[in-house]
């Protein structure tokens, strides 16, 4: 078994009486696509928000490459190498694709508290932004304003922003949600290309996409891990079928 890049030990978070994430223990291995699925309200989004620092855990711990990062805020996690994409399109209004990716690429500077040299005159920032532009396949749309992009393009840009920060681990929050068939295919293809060089944690509803992309799948139900295994094992599991797949697949 490969070394885990991210480990959760008994991670919990409650909202009032609801245990949204309940003592989740999981290991994400380096270099793999690991999907987290589950019915609505299973705690997938809460789990992702705990991993990216948007929410604080009530109990348990998160370890990234052996370091305890349970209490780290989102900006620190990003600098450590955990990049996340957001489900709702969160493109930065007013910026073009190129400007957006250059901003994300500024994270390669030790600090952005730099007040004089224009940001497009930092060779390392430009190089990184350019690479991310290519990786998310938006080179032809570089000068388009982010808010003028189609929904699918916004998702691609969203993924490009994460890539521009050079993450070691990508947390992707439902990258296919709300996309049409063709747009979804384009994003799945993009994710497959990214997975060659990156470790991905994928929270997703789209079952076909999950089973075609992921090497490991974890099923979350009522905030608890029901089962973790390969896509084939998950498909064959009676417990999963009953709890989850039964609703979707006849």
């Amino acid at each position: 078994m490969a070394e885990p890049i991210l480990e959760l030990r008994g991670l919990s978070r409650r909202f009032g009486a609801l245990r949204a994430v309940d003592k989740v223990t999981l290991a994400f291995e380096r270099g793999r696509v690991h999907a987290v699925i589950g019915p609505n309200g299973a705690g997938k989004s809460t789990l992702l928000n705990l991993l990216s620092g948007e929410l604080r855990a009530d109990g348990g711990s998160v370890h990234f490459r052996g370091e305890d990062v349970t209490r780290a805020p989102p900006d620190r996690l990003s600098r450590l190498g955990i990049g996340r994409s957001f489900q709702t399109a969160t493109v930065l209004e007013g910026l073009t694709c190129e400007e957006t990716l250059r901003l994300a690429a500024q994270s390669c500077l030790r600090s952005s508290m730099r007040f004089f040299r224009p940001s497009d005159r930092y060779p390392e920032v430009n190089a990184r932004a350019e690479r991310a532009l290519g990786e998310c396949r938006m080179t032809a749309r570089r000068s388009a304003r982010a808010k003028d992009l189609s929904y699918g393009e916004q998702r691609q840009l969203e993924i490009g922003m994460v890539l521009a920060t050079s993450p070691q681990l990508l947390l992707l929050d439902e990258p296919l949600a709300g996309l049409g068939h063709d747009e979804a295919l384009a994003v799945v293809d993009l994710l497959r290309a990214i997975a060659v060089e990156h470790t991905l944690v994928l929270v997703e509803h789209d079952m076909d996409a999950v089973f075609s992309l992921a090497a490991a799948v974890t099923v979350l139900v009522n905030g608890k891990v029901l089962e973790t295994g390969t896509p084939a094992q998950i498909r064959a599991s009676p417990a999963v079928r009953e709890a989850y797949l039964g609703e979707e697949e006849p």
Partner: peptide, 12 residues
């Protein structure tokens, strides 16, 4: 544009 998103890019 979006403070939460900018924070997630690594900026305090």
């Amino acid at each position: 544009g979006n403070e939460q998103r900018t924070r997630a890019l690594g900026f305090s």
